[in-house]
Nucleic acid binder design. Structure first.
Lengths: 342, 342
DNA sequence: CTGAAAGCGCTAACAA
DNA sequence: TTGTTAGCGCTTTCAG
C-alpha cells in the first residue's frame, strides 16, 4: 500500500494552477502572483511534495553539481581542501559529487566518465599524473570547466596552487640566516614537479648566499615518514652530518626528526629541520616543526571560486593562481651554536 | 557550431537496432546477441556517446547515489571515515554525494532535503544532535535507509559505532595496572553520549579495583587542545595533581600533555596520559600518545556495507554494530615510580 | 532475443 | 501573469 509519488502536476492541480506556474514558484523564478505562490506553497506542504532534480536536470540540461576528484583522501592535506570546497560550493548552491582515484589512472578515467554521465557543471581535481588526457578532452569539448589543484596535465588549464620554488627558497634562507651552512634537501620523488620546484628554490637561496648546491646533499625517497628516516640515513652515510635539513614535506620531516634523535642528536639544535605543508601534526610534533605553510583551505576556496566563474562563463581563458606560502616558525630550527661542529 | 547531443537513439540508429536493445547493451542487462552488442559498442565509441544518468534515473526511479552527511569535515576522524566509505561505495557502484553541516541543524535539514531531491538510495550520516527528526521521518516514509555513524537520533536506527564504555574501562585498567591511583577524567562535554559512556567505563574500572570514583577528578570542557589545557588546570586547582589522566579524546590529551609540561612535570612519567581516538597526531606527539583506537575506517566500511544491505533490502530490521576498540600503548603512560608522590 | 509504444517529472517556449 | 504544448533521454512493459 505504497502511496503514489507526488509530482508537480499534483501540486499544481491541488493549488488550482498550471504545472508551469507551479514550476516557476517552486524554483522561485519568473513571475508569479502572491496568491498563486501561497496556494502552491501550501499545496506542496500539504502533499509532502519533493522536487525531483533528476527530472529537472534532464529537462533543463544542467545539473547543479560539481565533481571533486582526489587522488588520496588519506592525506590530511586533501581533507583540508575538502573543507574549503565543501563550504564554498555550498555557498554557490552546487552539490558535491566526490570521487577518489587512489592514485590509479584507470580509476580516475572511470570516475571522470561517471562525472560526465552525471553531467556535472564543472570539475575540481587533484589529477593523478600519467593520464593520456583523453578524458580531459571530453570535458573541454563539452565546455565543462576543470580546475586543477595539483600540477595540471597541460599548459592551457585552470590551476590553483602554491609557489613551491618561493617556499623552498624562503625556508632555506631561514636556515642560512640561523647560521646553518651544511643544508640538505631530503625526501620526495624527483619526477614530481613540486620536488623540482622546491629544489630550485633551495638552490636559489644557497647561490644567493654564495654557496654552490652540492648533489651530495640531495637525497630522494618516498614522501613519507619512513621515507624520511631512510633518506636521512643514506644522507649521513654518503655525505656526513648536515647541520640543517630542508624536507620535501612534513611527513618526511617527522621521519628526519626521528632519525636525528636515533643518532643521539637533538633535532632543532644540532640539526635544524624544516618541513613543507604545515599539516596538523606539525604543531604537535616534538620539537614542533618549522614548516612552509600552504593553506590548502585557501587554495581550495580559490579553486571553487574560479570554477564557479568558469561555469557561469565570466571568462574562459585558462587562469593560474599561484599563492605565496608562508614560513611558520616553530622549534625545529634554532640558531647554530658554535660548538664542536664549528 | 555546437554539435547536437548524442543520444541513445542516435546510437541505436547508427547500429541499426532499436533504442530498447541499445539500452540493454549499454547497461549490460538483459539479453542481447553478440552481433548487436558489437555494433552498439562500436556506434557508441564512434559517436562519442555519453550515457545520461539523469534521464536513466528519472525513468528507472533509482539514482545509484548515496549521500554522506558529516558535521565537521575538519576533524581528522571524518577524513578517515571518508576513506573507507569512498572505497566501499565505489566497490558497490554507488556515487557519493557529500554534504557538510558544519554542526548546524538548519544546514543539516537543508542538506537532507537536497538529498531527497536527488533521490539518493541511502544515507550515511554523522548526525548533528538536536534535530527535530522531521527530515529523518521523510526518509523512512520513503524507505530510504539511513546508517548513522554517531549516536542515532532514536532507538530504531541503523548505527555503526564503537563501544565507548569498554574503551574507557580498558584504558583506565591500564592506568591502574601501572600503579596509578589518582586518575582523572578530563575534557569533553557531558551532554554527549560518548562522554557519558566513557565516564561509565572509567567508573567501572575504578570500582572493580575497589576505588570509588570521585567527582573532584572529573572535569569537563571543550573537546579540543585548548579545552584540554584549561580543564587540566582547573583539575589541579580543585583537586591537586593527579598521577594519571584519562582524556575524553586525543585532542584533549595533547592539551593535557602540554599543560603538564608547563607545570615542570614530565608527561608519561609523573603523570600518565591516555587519549581516545588514535588520531594521526597521536603517533607523532611527544611523548607519543597511548590511546584508545577506534579505526574509523573500519566503522565506516561496515557502515557502507550495512547501508548497501538495507538498500538492496536484505533485511529491514534496524541493526546496531558496536565495535570493540583497542588500546594502543605508546609512551605517554609508564609505571608509577615510587617517588615523592608515593 | 528484439522492437514499438508509453511514459518518468520536469521545464522551455510560446501564446493567451 | 498564466496556461498550453512539446519534449529532455532514458527504461519499461509487452507483444512479436
Amino acid at each position: 500500500m505504497k502511496s503514489k509519488n507526488v509530482t508537480l502536476q499534483d501540486v499544481a492541480r491541488h493549488a488550482g494552477v498550471s504545472r508551469a506556474t507551479a514550476s516557476r514558484i517552486v524554483r522561485g523564478e519568473g513571475y508569479a502572483s502572491d496568491e498563486a505562490r501561497q496556494k502552491v506553497l501550501a499545496a506542496m506542504e500539504e502533499l509532502g511534495y519533493i522536487y525531483d532534480r533528476n527530472a529537472a536536470n534532464l529537462r533543463s540540461r544542467q545539473s547543479g553539481t560539481v565533481g571533486f576528484i582526489l587522488s588520496d583522501i588519506d592525506n590530511p592535506v586533501y581533507g583540508e581542501s575538502l573543507v574549503g570546497i565543501s563550504q564554498k560550493l555550498d555557498e554557490y548552491g552546487y552539490t558535491l559529487i566526490l570521487g577518489t582515484t587512489f592514485n590509479s589512472v584507470a580509476k580516475q578515467d572511470a570516475i571522470l566518465a561517471k562525472m560526465l554521465e552525471y553531467r556535472v557543471d564543472g570539475l575540481l581535481m587533484v589529477a593523478v599524473p600519467g593520464s593520456d588526457g583523453k578524458m580531459y578532452e571530453k570535458f573541454s569539448r563539452r565546455n565543462i570547466p576543470i580546475v586543477y589543484l595539483r600540477e595540471p596535465p597541460n599548459e592551457r588549464a585552470n590551476y590553483v596552487g602554491v609557489d613551491n620554488r618561493y617556499g623552498a627558497k624562503m625556508a632555506t634562507e631561514h636556515l642560512l640566516r640561523l647560521g646553518r651552512r651544511r643544508i640538505a634537501y631530503v625526501g620526495g620523488l624527483p619526477d614530481l614537479t613540486p620536488w623540482k620546484l622546491r629544489r630550485q628554490g633551495y638552490a636559489d637561496a644557497l647561490r644567493e648566499h654564495g654557496l654552490e648546491p652540492d648533489e651530495q646533499w640531495i637525497v630522494c625517497g618516498e614522501a613519507t615518514r619512513v621515507g624520511g628516516i631512510s633518506a636521512f640515513e643514506s644522507l649521513v652515510d654518503q655525505a656526513g652530518l648536515p647541520d640543517a635539513v630542508l624536507c620535501f614535506n612534513d611527513m618526511v620531516a617527522f621521519g628526519v626528526l626521528h632519525a636525528i634523535r636515533e643518532k643521539g642528536l637533538v633535532p632543532g639544535k644540532d640539526i635544524a629541520v624544516v618541513g613543507f605543508d604545515n599539516v596538523r601534526e606539525a604543531a604537535i610534533s616534538y620539537p614542533r616543526l618549522t614548516t612552509v605553510s600552504m593553506s590548502y583551505k585557501t587554495t581550495s576556496i580559490l579553486a571553487a571560486q574560479l570554477l564557479h566563474e568558469r561555469i557561469i562563463g565570466v571568462d574562459t581563458e585558462p587562469k593560474q593562481i599561484i599563492l605565496k606560502p608562508e614560513l611558520v616558525i616553530r622549534e625545529s630550527c634554532s640558531a647554530k651554536q658554535d660548538n664542536r661542529y664549528s
